[in-house]
Write a protein that binds this DNA or RNA. Sequence first.
DNA 1: AAGACGGGGCA
DNA 2: TGCCCAGTCTT
Length: 362
Amino acid sequence: MLKNQTNYFQQKLLLWHKLENKRELPWKGEKDVYRIWLSEIILQQTRAAQGWNYYERFLQTYPTIEKLAKAPLEDVYKLWEGLGYYTRCRNLHATAQKIVFELKGEFPKTYDEILKLKGIGPYTAAAIASFAYNLPHAVVDGNVFRVLSRFFGETTATDSSAGKKLFEQLANDCIDKSNAAVYNQAIMDFGATICKPDNPLCNSCALNKKCVALKKEMVMHLPVKEKQLKQRSRWFVFFVLEYKGRFAVQQRTEKDVWQNLYQFPAMEFHIEKEWKTFLKLKNILQAQTLFTSAAAKQTAITKPVVQKLSHQTIHAVAVLVKVPALKKQMKQVQWKTKAELKQLPFPKIMHQLMQGKVMELF
DNA sequence: AAGACGGGGCA
DNA sequence: TGCCCAGTCTT
């Protein structure tokens, strides 16, 4: 019964891929495991269109895994800047070093060994194993959850542990074991271009005759997710302190968003009202006395900037202060020239702030 | 099992 | 706005 359905699915999918798939991506058909690995890390939770440029720039800068392993971590972060989920970057570098310095430059060649590497989970291990070595491991990503849940009418939540197990099993039931690379490519392309989250192309879908969700009019209700992520708001004031042509920056070390990236010294508020109150002129001027022993030569404040992250809404302004004399040595602060600042990775919102309109206070 | 982790695109 | 995206790691 189900066997029938999985066979139909596999054959129609492969036929669609052969005849109709037009998706062109720079890593398609790639057999170099370094490039496959790099592209998969970049593409985790990231749209192909967004990751494309990063992938090309990484390959230009680090054409081999040796180059990546030998590069300073700071440089790798700078190249990753703006892509998000920065732990991926740290793990990318760490894994490159492990492979080059401990594994003699040889990328592991089995699913289980690949899975042990930092930054590589079940999805990425299956992707590398199949694309590079044609090993029969089915990828299970957001596309696969969606395609399988719809075609088989499977309502188990994809973000439950039962769901993960079930869909991994289902995916491995469907895969063409002798042709894993092509099959995995096909199902993800299909999910991205036909069985899309919104406005799926059911009318022209090559699998629509046996799609359970379509028959039951459940397409837009699948896949099922049971968890909803919490949103919280945070309010920041960043102080851009300029002293003798240098600027104070600090690295974010705490376990928080933007770990290991740089920022201007910050104050955080958890209540919007307190943030707004602080932004009144006299409070800002008073806060400056934390850093400077004499009246600032010039003070300006940027317009507020809002950035929506998937789990936080960040509100921020920057206060620009020309400091005539330092009050005391601030801890954990480095003074950098403009040229040096350009070498450091900053969160997106720091760039937004510096590009935004500035209102002079003096 | 539940949360945390970025940023962008789309309706 | 809310949801999703070639997910993984920590607690």
